[in-house]
């Protein structure tokens, strides 16, 4: 007899992997984006299983609600189809396959044994309520305040870059 969180875990994982594969295999780019949204939902569900409610809802708001909407926007406006797609030659495709496999190799090698050695402080992981808003906020603004602020600088840089690119040339 499985318990309910185990069933949910396998269900969500299957859904996540299936939708991730469909992102790659669908012919229609709009379908790909919608499968990616489903994939994000499945991953958010995993956050919920880990008792990280804040991450769950923020993942949905930011990824499914904001970023993917902009993706959908772009793809709908460009209206991509087979004719307008740039044709790539065979060498380029081969290079893409090889580099993809290499990336997979590096990821597997890096994640091998990751469950035993972690970079995170152990006591932060031990607390099962770390995913709740209050605890997460306290950790972010005390112990991890420097990385947190640095990542916000990254966002500002991206925003300034967007404004620079989007601005009309005066003259």
């Amino acid at each position: 007899m499985y318990n309910i969180s185990e069933v949910a875990f396998y269900g969500l994982s299957t859904l996540a992997i299936f939708s991730a594969l469909m992102v790659v295999f669908s012919r229609n780019p709009v379908h790909s984006v919608l499968y990616l949204v489903v994939c994000f939902f499945a991953i958010s569900g995993h956050f919920l299983l880990l008792n990280a409610q804040f991450l769950f809802v923020v993942n949905i708001i930011v990824y499914a609600g904001a970023i993917m909407v902009l993706f959908l926007f772009t793809i709908m406006m460009l209206n991509l189809n087979r004719e307008s797609e740039p044709h790539k030659n065979i060498i380029l495709k081969l290079a893409a396959v090889v580099s993809g496999c290499l990336l997979l190799l590096v990821l597997v090698a890096a994640l091998k044994g990751a469950e035993t050695t972690t970079a995170m402080p152990i006591d932060a992981i031990k607390d099962p309520n770390i995913g709740l808003v209050k605890n997460l906020g306290k950790e972010l603004f005390t112990r991890f305040v420097l990385p947190f602020e640095i990542s916000s600088i990254l966002f500002i840089a991206a925003m300034v870059g967007t404004v620079m690119l989007g601005k009309k040339k005066l003259t």
Binding site: F54, V58, I60, I61, A64, G65, V69, L72, M76, V133
Partner: peptide, 25 residues
């Protein structure tokens, strides 16, 4: 009574865009 109720509302509101976009496209 979930302890992230307000954020839940925002999550759902941000998903409301999909109905309109998918239908229109």
């Amino acid at each position: 009574d979930i302890n992230i109720g307000v954020l839940f509302v925002f999550g759902v509101v941000s998903l409301g865009v999909y109905g309109v976009m998918i239908g229109g496209w």
